[in-house]
Amino acid sequence: MPETLQFYLFAALAIGASALVIGQRNPMHSVLLLIASFGALAGLYVLLDAPFVAVAQIIIYAGAIMVLFLFVVMLLNAPQEDAHKDPFALVRQSGLTRVGAVLALLLLLQLSWALLSVSGLAGPVDAGGDAAVVSSVPELGRVLFTDYMFAFEATSVLILVAMVGAVVLAGRRENEE
């Protein structure tokens, strides 16, 4: 069963890398581990017959957004988080953070419970629908530019706003200082 094996490999890689992302004290290593996690997710997308999304994931997330993060980490030469040399420092922090950890654990339990108690999820993921339709790029384009036309245009405005916002926020003003 190569596909099952691939699924568990990619899933383990994605979860492991993501867990390490939040466990790292060095932001540079966090960014790199997140890239690995995105790569594994792209593998899962290929298994789900979505090759175009998988490649877009690599190009947009790993190739552009993460380079931006890397750029900022390098630019700020960001200091490492207040370094306790203790590997369990995260869990041992003071009151409020510990509540946060408990809440996160509760969320995981609740999500798993919800997933396990709903019926109809146990069937194989590719039971319905034709793989050729789902993985077809022309079909994707057709639906995107007809049914989701308004959302598409709205997104372009969002990008424009984000661009202007980023320039205004991060740009140095010459009349100050």
């Binding site: 490649v55 877009a56 690599i58 190009i59 790993a62 190739g63 552009a64 993985s135």
Partner: peptide, 13 residues
């Protein structure tokens, strides 16, 4: 079938 994008994605890595 998305070969061109694969080249693009990998070079951007």
């Amino acid at each position: 079938n998305v070969g061109l994008l694969v080249v693009f994605a990998v070079t951007s890595m």
